[in-house]
Design a protein around this nucleic acid. Structure first.
Lengths: 221, 221, 221, 221
DNA sequence: GATGAATGAGCTTTCATTCAT
DNA sequence: CATGAATGAAAGCTCATTCAT
């Protein structure tokens, strides 16, 4: 038995163990920072508190992260990874049922479920944290990917699919964000609002099937 | 009598001058703070910099504002005042032409023009500044007023006007905000996007004229 | 009637009037400062507040007083004047009845009544205000005068009258001060305490009539 | 086993060393603050100066003390601890010789020796520092303890022991304070003054052995 | 003389980061 | 590698004092 175990073990178990420990430390730090952010907002995030909550020394934090921003980067990474996973999953489903109602349903459902997971953290990350240009670019990258996929799915159904995809994606994102961010101020349950959003997007896409993008309409006419 | 009146008259101008000077200082402070906010974001806003940019001493800043937050309050005030002015103007126009296209046109046009005036400041104020509960309540108040007016205008045309008003107002706000905040990432000119938004909202409202609010639709069906 | 009024007026009524107004301003400033001191303690005393409470501008305060300390000086002056008045009055009484009980009675009664007039101000002045050496010297001067007079009165009755006077004056001052400063923590009414103090001082003075000053007694013998 | 123990042993000293270093920093801060207070009075006490005098950075000051007041608390603590130690020691002595002269001797000797250790600091602490209610309560607590013990010791000898204890304790405290605080203005050596104080307190206590507390005597009779 | 707007040195406190142990 | 004591730049704010009007 020891032999077989040894045969499965990597060549340098010590380093593995070290790496595993290191990874655990990194995870603890990122998790602690995410918790603080969710609970106390951007203003409550400071490196000494992160270290304490993660159960490590402040020195160790700087052993693994060059500065505070890098920790936020890591949080953002995890956040975006979940978004990308949802995106991949949605893309698969789209291959099965590429009709308009399905596209809209996946879009609305996807954003709502994305925002439902730790809404407080999401809120802080998207409307309080002063993200660096780099960080902002990464968020925009995910948005671009989503628009790309939705545009491809819309292509058989509507003209100017990229423009329409941008509109529906941004709308679905913004509204589901708003609902989860301040739950008060909603005139109906979130489910009803989601259904209305679905209806709006579908009505729009059905309306523009063969049309060119609308020419600008001056507001006061 | 005229002579004696004339001899006493100068007093007023002196006080006026004093008040004018004080008002100029207050304005300079608020203006400087708004500039810093627009240029450098929330993190760049500090009282010493405000004083320097306003060309006054730090003491003068605290002569007119009890603390840093009060300066932000003043900026927010000015901001909300413009919103309220637009709202009042829009409400007037609605009385003249209360049809659906006019409602949507005013909504989209109003938000676009609101965001066009110093979009960077708007961006910081709405997505980076840690507003106090009071400040947040005031912003929400303006939003509620807009929804109220739109709902009243929609009442003759659609069922459940409050729900629909909330949806279209939030959508118009969020999208026009997005366009002006990061101008890159738009697949078409802002005017085209606005026209598309207009089309989406109109399609939605025409679609739901007599309908009840949609029942929830599970995303993957 | 106007004539008689004029005949009583000084030669330069304008200057008188000015001086009177100036004196009123000075008084208002000192009075305001004393009130603030009594109500809010040393930490609450600042020149802008003094000006506001006195109903004059901060500029006027500096017209009459070179700096903040001078205002405190003036308060102290008024305070010491009352002490000196009491002292003069007490000295007169001593000439009538120069026996031991009368001396002690005047001493205790004098300090109690001195402290009874605005005890809060007295408290701040004597135990919170960082008096300048000059100010401190003036307070000490009054104390020295009192000791001088008491020593003279005690001279026919006891040996080493100056030493004894110092002891009884300091004791009477310290205790009556304590009673009025923190009224809680007293085991009996102030009147009873005063009578006990009287008894203590009298017992001491009767005890030392012909004695030399006590030789030092090591504490633990 | 000894070998392995020895190899692990060094760890402790390291932590010890760290704690010792931290303790040294704390001590340096408190010591520096006490010096500043003694030399320059309350007005000279500021956190930057404390840090400089302690030879540490301002950050270290706030590493160990939550705010400026906590440093004063620490100074007060040390001060009161010495007082409490003297009190405990005096209480023991009283059990051996509970006669009146011993009580008075311990009282006078105790206060004199308490005040002899850094009289300037004592002066600032007791008559310039704006103590918080908490701090004031602690000072009063020590005074109450002393009165309690003296009252118990006096009980076999005099009536109304609590009233008499209050009087003698406050007198001993106030006078020894005065002598050490401004050494000038004393007509005789401190030792002579202490002996006189002793005589006064003893005369009083002998005088009131079986008496009720004196009825109030109007000052001018 | 009177006014009060303006000044700025100086205070308390925070927190990202470093480095001796 | 881990620790946590130490650092110090920088922030918010106060208040005695000055000076143009």
């Amino acid at each position: 038995m020891p032999a077989s175990t040894a045969s499965k073990a990597p060549r340098r178990p010590v380093r593995r163990a070290r790496q595993a420990r290191a990874q655990a430390t990194v995870d603890a730090i990122v998790e602690a920072a995410a918790q603080i952010l969710a609970e106390g907002g951007w203003g409550a995030l400071n490196t000494n508190l992160i270290a304490r909550r993660a159960g490590v020394s402040i020195g160790s934090v700087y052993e693994y992260f060059p500065n505070k921003g890098a920790i936020v980067d890591a949080i953002l990474d995890a956040h975006l990874s979940r978004g990308e996973a949802l995106l991949a999953q949605g893309a698969l489903r789209l291959q099965e049922r590429p009709d308009l109602p399905a596209i809209v349903g996946l879009l609305v459902g996807g954003f709502v479920s994305l925002h439902q997971d730790d809404p407080r953290l999401h809120r802080v990350l998207s409307s309080e944290a002063p993200l660096s240009p780099d960080q902002r670019a990464r968020v925009e990258g995910l948005r671009a990917s989503i628009i790309q996929i939705v545009a491809a799915a819309l292509a058989p159904h509507v003209e100017a699919p990229h423009i329409r995809a941008t509109l529906v994606v941004d709308t679905a994102e913004a509204l589901s964000h708003r609902w989860l961010v301040d739950e008060a101020g909603l005139p109906a349950s979130e489910a009803v609002m989601a259904a209305e959003l679905h209806r709006m997007l579908e009505a729009y896409l059905l309306d523009v099937r063969g049309a060119n993008p609308a020419r600008p309409i001056p507001p006061s006419s």
